[in-house]
Amino acid sequence: MEEELESGVVKKFLYINRRAPHGTVYAHEALEVVLIGAAFEQDVSLAFIDDGVFQLKKDQDTSEINTKNFSKIFAALEMYDVEKLYVERESLESRGLKEDDLSVDVKVIDSSEMKKLITDSEVIFNF
């Protein structure tokens, strides 16, 4: 159903995730865009800032709230060639988290590097 673009244009896409995972649908539906977007062969990066870092917390189990545990999808992103995941160190530390608390391999970067990542991107999605 999804048609590939024929233009051959490759842009730098950045998905900025700033929401915690289960209280609202934004994080889940953002991930659905990432998965569909992967088929378009753009240059994709994901940034986790503010409460967005909670999306990557390991051991999430939604069985008792009866919602979809989409956190498992992060581990599968590699198969979609989505490999650039960046976490802002300040956001992580201010929430008492360490890299070990996260479910997938990410690159932890400081605010100045995050600033550069945002500036260097061409299309930025916020959900």
Partner: peptide, 17 residues
């Protein structure tokens, strides 16, 4: 489909949310 959003990101000169 969501591909239409990605396409808008690629084709448009500006994307605003």
């Amino acid at each position: 489909g969501l591909g239409q959003l990605i396409e808008a990101g690629v084709q448009a000169e500006r994307l605003i949310t």
